[in-house]
Design a protein around this nucleic acid. Structure first.
Lengths: 301, 301
DNA sequence: AAGTTGGTTGAATCCCACA
DNA sequence: TTGTGGGATTCAACCAACT
């Protein structure tokens, strides 16, 4: 699954001008994706997978779980707070303009979001000339139940798959994979996948989740296998825990990841080195134990 | 299911000024919904269900079925064709402004569309201050396959359920119904329903479909039962074959329908009178036969 | 009568070489 | 550039005709 090749971590401040695709391949670039994207060349990427902030607009007070004392850990990270729809729209548009520029002629874009913002994203995509091929619906087998009973339980997230240009012919699509993944015999646009939990979920030093919205690797596998070829270059401007790159490596694709939050970089790098979810992973524990026992016995020269 | 009470057909040209809710209740009003809506009073409707044109932008060329001597009858109705997204957006916004005005304080809006236009509609809804409660995904058991295998089979349509105002408290939601309809045990936002075909599908005088996009009654039942109470007033600005009103009557709700295309009115009215799909329905055939046999025997005085 | 077969259809942004 | 024709390939549901 993972050969242990470490993840290159690139700080673009170390250089000036355009970044060379070859030298930033298979790396994570630290920084605001708008700035980093602007330093990547035109028409150089086969596929972009994008998991932007959702603009959830959650209430300021923590939601109290009904009849329980604990507090639901809601998504209220700083990176997901925008003052208004206008501000959010502007941000998304700036990113998408750059994404369109760096995509190859027959390149494709995947975006994932929820009803809070997917309509804004989809509208902007269409206005910029992206050509939507499908909406794909991720149905979670284990969604967070809606304990207040005031709405339907939101068990889905929406992915949009779009071409850079409307009339692009010969884009990549592996129908056999689509039929394997989509429900029914027709390769429908519905994927049933559990949430990312347990061992797969990266943990921080306190043992709680490292990232609030880590996507399941299976989701990225399906995206990658249906719409890219081996050796293709995949770009993720909102890398988070690095699932996109991790799956890309597993499936023999190249990747460039961009992440603005330094808190995520160590966990992401660890994941590549150990091919494992994170600090709680058995292999890491074993390694730590081995290191503790054999302290001083081994070391890099 | 249907008591045979005929459907009132109202031509608003017959009167001037505002329309009285009482007198247009349980009727279909003939005309452009923007004009008709503007003549309905503020805050008078409990729920709006809206199935607008999708602006499909299908190719001019027919898709041939190569194992049989015919083509796919595409949706190329004039009412679905707009010059541009801008024109489409303007149309939708004009309708939604009026919809918001006629909705009661705790009123809700349902909209259905596909990826072709749902994002534009959702964005406009948010900009107008509608508060999206859920996206609900209709998964079709029998979608048309993507024969050429160049995309995922599009097996879904998206419904958006939204409040007129963000902070409305005490809006109508029947969670037991939601649990009954949504997949899983949590009342999830995914509904699996077959397409509207067979006897249920209204036919024209030639025996082919009366309307290119008739929705299944089961879809409207779920919308109605989860988000309205008995006696509520439901408005449908794009009535088509009148499924919304027909289901409303079946479930003890009041309704106002608006339809701009006169071709659909007779079929719609027939459906109410006979509680039946249309000319091909058995009951209608029986009636016709009985009338032929007993010609002259009975008659209105 | 009950089951089988063949034909038709569904909101579809569905191909490609060649003239 | 647009139009034509060759050829490659989907499934569930419904219905009419037939066994």
């Amino acid at each position: 699954m993972c050969d242990g090749t470490p993840l290159k971590v690139i700080d673009p401040v170390d250089t000036e001008g355009m970044l060379d695709i070859g030298s930033v391949s298979d790396s994570v670039i630290f920084g605001d994706c708008r700035t980093v994207l602007s330093r990547l060349p035109d028409s150089s990427v086969d596929m972009v997978f994008m998991d932007p902030p959702y603009h959830l607009q959650l209430p300021k007070k923590d939601l109290k779980r009904w009849n329980q004392n604990n507090v639901v850990v809601a998504v209220r990270d700083e990176w997901d707070s925008f003052g208004s729809f206008e501000e959010y729209d502007r941000f998304i548009e700036e990113v998408l303009v750059e994404v369109k520029r760096v995509l190859k002629e027959k390149g494709a874009l995947w975006v994932i979001s929820t009803y809070h913002s997917i309509h804004r994203i989809g509208k902007i995509m269409q206005d910029l000339g992206f050509w939507i091929l499908n909406d794909v619906h991720w149905v979670k087998t284990n969604p967070m139940p809606n304990w207040l009973g005031v709405r339907f339980t939101n068990a889905t997230e929406t992915l949009l798959w779009a071409l850079r240009d409307k009339d692009a012919k010969g884009y990549t699509f592996h129908r056999d994979r689509a039929k394997e993944f989509g429900i029914g015999k027709v390769g429908a646009n519905v994927w049933v996948i559990p949430l990312c939990t347990g061992e797969e979920r990266l943990k921080n030093s306190e043992g709680t989740r490292l990232h609030s919205t880590q996507k399941p690797a299976e989701l990225l596998r399906r995206v990658t296998l249906t719409s890219t070829n081996e050796g293709d270059l995949i770009l993720d401007p909102f890398a988070g825990t690095g699932t996109t790159g991790h799956v890309a490596r597993e499936l023999g694709r190249k990747f460039i990841m961009i992440e603005a939050n330094p808190d995520y970089i160590p966990g992401m790098a660890e994941r590549f080195t150990f091919g494992a979810p994170g600090p709680k992973d058995k292999r890491i524990k074993e390694l730590e134990e081995a290191m503790a026992e054999g302290e001083g016995e081994e070391g890099d020269p």
